[in-house]
Design a protein around this nucleic acid. Structure first.
Length: 425
DNA sequence: TCTGGGGTCCTAGGACCC
DNA sequence: TCTGGGGTCCTAGGACCC
């Protein structure tokens, strides 16, 4: 029996998380907004049924949502991250080969041990996750990851399957003939346009498309996708968590920002956040990129600029990032524009233990204990307890998060309170 | 007035080397 | 008048994912 892949996918994950702590929301439409309350990034089934599209800007549908009694939440990543961890933990207890693919998805490699009915087995997995975490999931099974994704989508959409669909023992071509090519994993908007121009509308047509054309027009990734639809695995399981190759931090502003002083505060804040992530994974970066952009939707001419800085030596010191990053920011800053966003990406990551200091560079004995002390204090007392002065105190440019739910599971002060009341009387 | 953030991979083209 | 070829490395930009 060949090995099979299963995709476990949390249903409407962010919306499900929000509903978990507010039973009144059961059966009611719920949506979750992106950072800055910008657009809709998660919808409960009831919200989908109202025709609310993924990615719709909030300001365009605010009135509609209100009129239909849709409950709206700002995103609460502390909550989603914690619940994701719980789901993955349950999964790892049940299965030896789990690859966490995203906050709400994981691939399983189902080995030969499962000579039993796989669909039945996955329904049990699903039930266990629901019971232990309260999060509903769908599971798709196929002989490649791409086919498992197809199956997962069918499991989620068609209620008759009880949340689990195994495509491997079905008439695959008949299913792919009904499957829109734009819904295939790895086929985005651009590739869909290209495929449509060639008359390819379904996953089956993509599967049967000629290799040479695919390689030329959709690059090697498109060819891989077609091969996966044919049942040839090209995308392997990642059995060990891979270390990151870059770390980014950026956010849109909550109000209009024009001055260099505000941009400096914001960029310093983001550089500090990126540096914390870098230190958490015990790594150093040898270069950073800073960028600056005006609103691309605005009628005014769009300005966007970036600059890459190679550091004299790999580091994870917030102080060093700020020093070089702000100098670069000054170079790309143009006065008189309304900026929408600035950000930083750290590149050239390496493990701290691998780093060999330069023979002639002066030893930096202060930076490491200083950063360690800052991290310790901020971990204990909250993120901005101690910071570089240039990152600012008021942070007037900070983004909006007007409808955030409490950090129910990660903050003692925000634990949900259960009230018991007597039925008698 | 208000349109997310954080990642990965692939390719083309330029710079540079011998 | 006539100005090579092949390789590597780096970077910017595009496309995709959730």
């Amino acid at each position: 029996m060949p090995k099979l892949f299963a995709l476990v996918d949390c249903n409407n994950f962010y919306a499900s998380c929000e509903r978990l702590f507010d039973p009144k929301l059961a059966g009611r439409p719920v949506v979750v907004l992106s950072n800055n309350d910008g657009c809709i990034i998660a919808r409960s089934n009831e919200a989908k049924a109202l025709g609310i599209g993924m990615g719709t800007p909030y300001f365009k549908c605010r009135d509609f949502l209100k009129s239909r009694g849709v409950k709206v939440f700002s995103s609460n990543y502390a909550l989603y991250g914690d619940l994701s961890h719980r789901v993955m933990t349950v999964l790892k207890q049940l299965e030896p080969h789990v690859e966490i693919y995203s906050i709400d998805e994981a691939f399983l490699h189902l080995g030969e041990i499962h000579d039993k009915d796989l669909t039945q087995y996955c329904r049990q997995v699903r039930q266990t996750i629901l019971q232990h975490t309260g999060i509903p999931v769908s599971i798709g099974i196929g002989c490649t990851k791409t086919l498992a994704k197809v199956a997962g989508r069918i499991a989620k959409k068609n209620k008759n399957h009880g949340g689990v669909f195994d495509i491997s023992n079905k008439d695959i071509d008949a299913i792919l003939a009904q499957f829109d090519v734009s819904d295939v994993w790895g086929i985005g908007r651009r590739q869909t346009e290209r495929l449509h121009r060639r008359g390819i509308k379904t996953a089956l047509a993509l599967k049967n498309c000629e290799d040479g054309w695919l390689r030329k027009n959709l690059t090697v990734t498109g060819l891989r996708t077609a091969m996966e639809l044919r049942g040839t695995p090209c995308i392997a399981m990642e059995n060990h968590p891979v270390s990151k190759k870059s770390i980014a931090s950026s956010k849109s502003f909550g109000c209009q920002v024009e001055s260099l002083a505000d941009l400096k505060e914001a960029l310093s804040t983001y550089m500090a956040q990126a540096a914390v992530k870098l230190r958490e994974q015990g790594a150093l970066a040898n270069s950073l990129q800073v960028y600056l952009t005006t609103n691309r939707f605005s009628a005014k001419p769009h300005y966007s600029a970036r600059r890459v800085i190679t550091l004299p030596e790999p580091t994870n010191s917030t102080t060093v990032f700020i020093k070089h990053g702000l100098a670069a920011l000054k170079q790309i800053y143009k006065p008189g524009l309304r900026y929408q966003k600035t950000g930083v990406v750290l590149f050239g990551l390496m493990a701290e233990s691998y780093h060999q200091p330069g023979l002639f560079s002066p030893p930096d004995r202060k930076s490491k204990p200083l950063m360690a002390a800052m991290d310790l204090i901020n971990n204990k007392w909250g993120r901005y307890t101690i910071q570089h002065a240039v990152a600012g105190l008021e942070k007037p440019w900070k983004n909006r998060r007007e409808k955030k739910s409490p950090a129910y599971t990660t903050n003692w002060k925000e634990l949900p309170v259960v009230k018991a009341s007597s039925l008698a009387g």
